[in-house]
Design a binder for these strands. Structure first.
Lengths: 112, 112
DNA sequence: TTGATATGCAACTATATGGTTGCATATAAG
DNA sequence: CTTATATGCAACCATATAGTTGCATATCAA
């Protein structure tokens, strides 16, 4: 899971996932096209995404095709982010209370 | 949003969020307690979480209390991760197809 | 006031990260 | 066969990151 979070920390890598989301199965050259960095830099990013299991590759002749694997993203949502999501509404209320009356002044502006 | 992803990339920071999830409103010393790194290191991590708006602070005397703010987590789930989540089932099917018959060999083992 | 506790600030260090360039290799096309 | 295309490997570089230590400051308690 750590690999996934680390992979998502970089905006270039998130952009690559976005591109694959729009059009799956692109080659390194395809994905490099239009990016302001070198092909090698893109290749390194894709390698990191592959290690995080967010992208799977398939060789077709001399072309390395990249396929998005959304499973690890679902995993982190369900296994980690989800719990915060569930507590979101409750936490918001509780949060406001704690911020607004850190000391026990709950009767102060009762009638204002 | 980039700040949030960067903040989540570090496992110590995720552990701090976990701790605040269990018990909200802890001080720096509280959060430092039991961690294998220095108080200053913890303080830096908390500063990063604060900048990402994942944690809000409230001073109570000499104690700096930390409160979890789950809103940015919900935002990244809904505004970014969500689209992959939605496409998860569909992508899985499509993905398997593309991987398993990259060339057009679909009649090969039809009766095996 | 004195001492203990809670935090902040700043300098410093080691390693990770994202990027580059140069060259090598493999496949496709003429 | 020769050339162009697609990718890989490796060395190198600058900056970011995560950690440290030392000292200063503010608050609480005796």
């Amino acid at each position: 899971m750590s690999d996934v979070f680390a992979a998502l920390a970089d905006s270039t890598r998130r952009a690559l996932l976005d591109r694959l989301f729009v059009k799956n199965g692109q080659s390194l050259s395809d994905l490099h096209h239009g990016m302001a960095i070198s092909r090698q830099a893109v290749a390194k990013h894709l390698q990191i995404l592959e290690t995080a299991n967010l992208v799977s590759i398939h060789w077709q002749g001399r072309e390395k095709l990249h396929y998005l694997n959304p499973v690890p993203l679902g995993d982190i949502v369900h296994r980690w982010l989800g719990k915060f999501e569930d507590a979101r509404i409750e936490a918001l209320t509780e949060f406001k209370e704690q911020i607004e009356k850190p000391q026990n002044q709950k009767e102060e502006k009762r009638r204002a």
